[in-house]
Design a protein around this nucleic acid. Structure first.
Length: 264
DNA sequence: GCCAACGTTGGC
DNA sequence: GCCAACGTTGGC
């Protein structure tokens, strides 16, 4: 995911960006893992951005380290679906990004499914600044699948699928004062507060499943009556249970086929 | 630890 | 632009 519009810009480097909660992404340099590792260790800068759920400035660090760690920090966001936990099984998620341009500290955080599809290297999903969302990022395993959801736009909808190709690593964009989602509280080098996971595009649906449709189906289909997305509308990174994933994919595929909309 | 005020997200 | 949901802050 990533990024925004950078698509044209620099190519050589590739920058990546990501998204975040609400928005989406920003760009940054592309980094590969090695770079990431290095950055993580050494420096601090990344410049990119991310947004995401931002949260607020949290309390101070100490608190963060302590209490926060306890409570918020550790639990995967609520209940929902996080993923199946059976060993070896893939977990499923839903990540939101904003497909329409919006400036955050001077950076356009736009990041759509098409932006992700255009990437040639794993995209860091950065900018997440909500503990519940970040905890979900940290619970992701390589190989997990996630719905790409367009938010804060004309037609909020699940528009495609991506795969988690690299588990969490520090989101150093939080430490870059110029980044869209800079977090002044994230100052302890030994304990980066925010995380990213790297994702790769897998598919774009010809017929997106809109939020409106999801809500309409929610009442009559028990399979999705408890979806975290629908119960915690502000969370930008939510869990999707195996049953929810299977149900939604079947609905999506069915409509793709003949484009029959089954309105459930 | 409770809770009111306040800020943000995100759909509409 | 409005507003509901929800998280954080900070007084007590």
């Amino acid at each position: 995911m990533a990024k925004r519009k950078t698509i044209d810009g620099e190519l050589g480097e590739e920058r990546v960006t990501r998204r975040s909660t609400r928005g989406r992404t920003v760009k940054e340099e592309v980094v590969d893992e090695e770079m990431i590792v290095e950055k993580v260790k050494a420096k601090d800068t990344v410049k990119t951005k991310g947004m995401a759920v931002k949260k607020s400035p949290i309390k101070d660090e100490e608190s963060e380290s302590k209490e926060e760690v306890k409570k918020t920090e550790t639990l995967p966001a609520k209940t929902n679906g996080t993923a199946p936990s059976a060993p070896g099984e893939r977990q499923h998620w839903l990540l939101k990004a904003e497909p329409e341009s919006r400036l955050e500290k001077g950076h356009d955080v736009k990041f759509s499914i098409d932006d992700l599809a255009a990437k040639s290297v794993p995209e860091p999903w950065d900018g997440i600044r909500s503990y519940a969302a970040r905890n979900n990022l940290r619970a992701m395993k390589k190989g997990d699948l996630a719905f790409f959801y367009h938010s804060s736009c004309k037609t909020p909808a699940i528009v495609g699928v991506m795969e988690i190709v690299q588990e969490h690593s520090p989101d150093l964009t939080a430490q870059d004062p110029k980044a869209a989602y800079y977090d002044p509280k994230d100052t302890d080098p030994s304990n980066p507060r925010w995380s990213v996971v790297h994702v790769e595009f897998r598919e774009k649906f010809s017929n997106p499943l809109t939020l409106r449709e999801l809500k309409d189906m929610q009442g009559s289909w028990k399979e999705i009556s408890e979806m975290q997305l629908l119960k915690q509308s502000r969370l930008s990174v939510t869990g999707v249970t195996g049953g929810e994933w299977e149900f939604l994919m079947s609905v999506i595929k069915k409509r793709e086929k003949g484009d029959v909309k089954e309105e459930m």
